[in-house]
């Protein structure tokens, strides 16, 4: 299994990663090698095997509908790169 340049770019798009040309080439090689390696899972007959999402089985973990204190807007916004009017400020998103 080898990943083409286009596939690498497509995945980078999904993951919102800006890659340099050099990275595209390197990731194409490295990810292809990793995919070759993980292909050993194809050897196994997995018919009838249930998937495991969790290591330890817990079920029905819920909380009561109780209001807890929120952050102050100052704390909420403290780590943001840019703020305005007590909100997070980002570059304009074109009005749809």
């Amino acid at each position: 299994m080898s990943l083409s340049r286009d596939e690498v770019l497509k995945i980078a798009g999904l993951a919102r990663l800006a890659l340099s040309e050099e990275e595209v080439a390197r990731f194409s090689d490295q990810l292809s090698a990793v995919l070759d390696y993980v292909a050993r899972l194809d050897e196994l007959d997995l018919r009838g095997i249930e998937p495991s999402v969790h290591a330890v089985a817990r079920t029905n973990v819920m909380r009561d509908d109780v209001v807890m204190p929120s952050l102050s807007p100052t704390d909420a916004l403290f780590n943001a790169a840019a703020t305005s009017e007590n909100q997070f400020l980002i570059q304009s998103i074109l009005e749809e």
Partner: peptide, 29 residues
């Protein structure tokens, strides 16, 4: 970046069953 890319690929349309889905089953084993 490499792992984000690998992860996004393993979950993407058309590859989920082959990679992520298969891995979950082998995890059971």
């Amino acid at each position: 970046k490499r792992r984000i890319m690998l992860g996004a690929y393993a979950l993407s349309a058309g590859y989920y069953d082959e990679y992520y889905g298969r891995a979950l089953k082998v995890r059971t084993l």
